[in-house]
Amino acid sequence: MKDFMLIFRQPSYDYSNLSPSEMQTLTKKWQDWVGGIAAQGKLKATGQRLSSEGKVLKAGGVVTDGPFVEIRERLGSFMIVKADNTDEATTLAHGCPALEANGSVEIREIV
């Protein structure tokens, strides 16, 4: 079995605009989805949700505000799953709540 990182990219929007019940519903979707992967014995590690604030260091020592000033999506979080191959890891990514918000899941083998 190999390890794969699922990287969650989402449109840049402010979660603070969600009502408490909307945030609770969204949190439950994530918990249920991750719980389903864990129940299959495929979950290796989860990452915490990342702040939208940050810096980007580029070649030559150039530092910019970031992290993704040029694009309209941001890296929201990640998790590591166990799967036999990329196809199985991709199957595990289906149902990710980020997809409901026009986000994406990048699936990468950890080598």
Rank of each mutant, 00 (worst) to 15 (best):
M1D: 13
M1I: 13
M1S: 14
K2R: 15
K2V: 08
K2E: 12
F4K: 06
L6N: 02
L6Y: 00
F8G: 02
R9M: 05
R9F: 02
Q10R: 04
Q10T: 11
S12H: 06
S12D: 08
Y13N: 15
D14Y: 00
Y15V: 07
Y15D: 01
S16L: 05
N17I: 12
N17C: 13
N17M: 12
S19C: 09
S19V: 11
P20C: 06
E22G: 11
E22S: 12
M23L: 14
M23Y: 14
T25L: 11
T25S: 15
T27E: 09
K28V: 11
K29R: 15
K29A: 07
K29Y: 11
Q31W: 15
Q31V: 15
D32G: 06
V34Y: 12
V34I: 15
G35V: 06
G36N: 08
G36R: 01
I37C: 02
I37V: 09
A38M: 07
A39H: 11
A39W: 09
A39P: 13
A39V: 08
Q40S: 07
G41Y: 07
L43P: 12
L43W: 06
T46F: 06
T46Q: 13
T46A: 08
G47T: 02
G47M: 00
Q48N: 14
R49G: 05
R49Q: 07
R49E: 06
L50C: 05
L50N: 04
S51Y: 04
S52F: 03
S52P: 11
E53L: 07
K55P: 07
K55M: 08
V56Y: 05
V56E: 06
L57V: 15
K58R: 15
K58G: 13
A59R: 14
G61I: 13
V62K: 15
V62C: 07
T64K: 09
G66H: 01
P67V: 05
F68Q: 02
V69P: 03
V69G: 03
E70I: 02
E70A: 09
I71L: 10
I71C: 07
R72M: 01
E73N: 01
R74V: 02
G76V: 04
G76K: 00
G76A: 11
S77C: 08
S77W: 12
F78R: 01
M79W: 00
I80K: 05
V81R: 09
V81M: 08
V81E: 10
D84Y: 12
D84H: 13
N85C: 09
N85G: 12
N85I: 08
N85E: 05
D87C: 03
D87Y: 06
E88N: 08
T90M: 05
T91D: 10
L92A: 00
G95L: 00
G95H: 03
C96G: 02
C96I: 03
P97H: 04
P97W: 03
L99Y: 01
L99E: 02
L99M: 05
E100K: 07
A101L: 14
N102Q: 10
N102G: 02
G103F: 01
G103R: 00
G103H: 00
S104Q: 11
V105R: 01
I107D: 04
R108N: 03
E109G: 03
I110E: 04
V111W: 07
V111T: 12
